[in-house]
Amino acid sequence: MSPAEVTSTGSRGTRVIGSIVLAGIVFHVLLSFVWSDPDADQGDLVRIMYVHVPSAWLAYMAFTVTAFGGVMYLWKRSLWWDLVAGASAEIGVVFCALALVTGSIWGRPTWGTYWEWTDVRIVTTLVLLLLYIGYLAVRRIPADPHQRSRRAAVVGIIAALNIPIVRFSVDWWADRTLHQKATIKLGGTELDGLMLFALFFGLILFTLIYAWMMIHRFRIAWLDEQIDRHGLDAAIAERLAESTSDVTRAVGLTKTGADL
């Protein structure tokens, strides 16, 4: 199907996933805000965890897919993998930012500050966010599709290679103060059954949200690519047609001249 005939990026599959996600969001909101109890220590604050933890999970998953897509692109040289990597990075950046914002909102009443430098995870996640903003910036640079893909693949892989290094260095760096343990409140024993269920349900729900967004975002990116390619082809064909008609006319005139 040519891009001109496509009217929607939806399909039966995405509509099924989308419907499940919508129902799941309603269920998750009820689970997080109504059915589950406040935490013994944190009170209602714990409820932000049901969004925060799945967001962070989604971001890390998305960035892993981006790196994998980059490796596959360099191996197969197929734009398909590059578009997967790009779509995944965009979603990852949004949810990475969401994880940081929700983390800060949680941190303010818990630690008394929006930002806690000694918390390894938030510092690592911030560096990660900056790395992938750079990745998206590289993708935005106008270039031939394969040129762009090569650059993006290398940047995506370096960012992924950097995740364990950043994590490890920040871990050591923050270790000089000891109140870091305060953040690991959500140990398995402190959560009752329904709270734990809400957390895991969130993880599954956000994974589905990711799948739904990925399919749509990938299809849009693919259509964009097709429009670029077909648009150029169409423009070339048009110019060719113009010049050919000019030639015909010119030849026609000569003929007329000869006839005379």
């Binding site: 790395l131 750079g134 910036a137 590289v138 650059r151 950097n162 290094i165 950043v166 260095s169 920040v170």
Partner: peptide, 27 residues
């Protein structure tokens, strides 16, 4: 080399390079 030849090379290089060098700065 990635940034070389790009019109945005002056701005793209620091935004790519500095986060990657964060562990080097810390270490």
């Amino acid at each position: 080399v990635l940034a070389a030849g790009l019109r945005v090379r002056e701005t793209i290089l620091p935004i790519l390079l500095l986060p990657v060098l964060a562990p080097v700065l810390i270490g």
